[in-house]
Design a protein around this nucleic acid. Structure first.
Lengths: 208, 208
DNA sequence: GTCTATAGGGCGATAGAC
DNA sequence: GTCTATCGCCCTATAGAC
């Protein structure tokens, strides 16, 4: 006998809001999305969004924080052979973007680029994580590790931008295998290849 | 004898609006900027912005369209030796971003990534231009040319994102020479290196 | 050429009834 | 737990006075 009264508890609604928010942020970035839009997609009253999440930034953070676990991904990757790290890294990167976490990652990139509330999240969380692993595995000093991490970030962020965000036909249409085969060596070079000397000074000042 | 009346003609104001708009769009992207803000920075009435430029998108287009001449830059670059194209391309890319056009380019990238009114401008204008030159100079077919152009775009867009937009310390702090030396070979590989076979099927129209 | 005034709308957030 | 009502703000764009 089906109950006919009010929708029971917060079971469905909170999750529905979160899912709608994740998709919306992924598609249009932080600024391009309003709480009212999210509520409308989730078929929910706008006030409920505030009720569950307090504010728009908090909703964004909660929506993005799901399902991306950089720590686990990285330690997994770095456990393997360093000489094949380039291809494995690209392969894993594509898996993440094409799997369930792609929407979150997309939202993060869009928002970071426009200087929204996650610009530093990349600068201060994901990049040092990569640099830290490089530091441990390669036995290089801190400066070199963070340079290599930044180079890796430059190619991978550009890959994500062209393949997923802008969806340029040739990059978006290529198979994962092909992308791994062509971009993998680039990453490998940034991981273990020779770097031009002298290395730039650490942090601080901008371009001479 | 100095005139004392009203500010004469549109001489200063229009240019002031344009400069303010360019800086603002570069710093915060299309959505992050309001006409009122631009007018305020330019010390001008908001209505004047509409008077001169009609609408916000038109202001954006006009502000960005200044000073970037892809055609000239490219034919210049491709006139040289193909085997040194990688490094020369990166060097030129950095010059453009660090010169007067950097603000425009930054605005374009920020806005393209958020799906604003220039997402296709990249897809349909700058990429085909590069692909076209590659086509002419390398004697490869249309599909291969557009693939190589997309690979180049992936590394260069990522470079711009990390160095100028996010300003990750290691990338932002490195000298132009160092960046050219380390990223140049990557681009060179995308220009003349072997590509994994079979090439992906043609994703769509990317050549002139 | 310049500015005031305003139309017309969307926004984030809150208070409080059911 | 859900929704109505609303406050107060900022926005683009236009009409029209000076």
């Amino acid at each position: 006998m089906p109950r006919t009264g009010r929708r029971p508890g917060e079971a469905g609604t909170r999750a529905a809001i979160l899912a709608a928010a994740r998709d919306a942020f992924a598609a249009r970035g932080y600024d391009g999305v309003s709480i009212r839009q999210v509520a409308s997609v989730a078929a929910v009253d706008p006030a409920l969004v505030h009720h569950y999440f307090g504010s728009k930034v908090e909703l964004f953070r909660t929506a993005v924080r799901t399902a991306v676990d950089p720590e686990g991904l990285l330690s997994d990757l770095f456990a393997g052979d360093v000489d094949t790290l380039g291809e494995r890294m690209v392969a894993r990167f594509l898996e993440v973007w094409e799997g369930g976490a792609g929407a979150n990652a997309s939202a993060l990139l869009r928002t970071a680029v426009t200087g929204g509330p996650t610009a530093d999240l990349v600068r201060e969380a994901v990049l040092p994580a990569v640099a830290g692993e490089l530091l441990r595995r390669l036995g290089v000093d801190r400066r070199e590790a963070s340079l290599r991490a930044a180079l890796i970030a430059s190619q991978l962020s550009g890959l994500a931008t062209t393949r997923y965000v802008l969806a340029l036909p040739p990059m978006a249409g290529a198979s994962a295998e092909w992308v791994v085969a062509v971009v993998g060596p680039t990453i490998q070079r940034y991981v273990t290849g020779e770097l031009p000397r002298p290395l730039p000074a650490d942090g601080g000042a901008t371009t001479p």
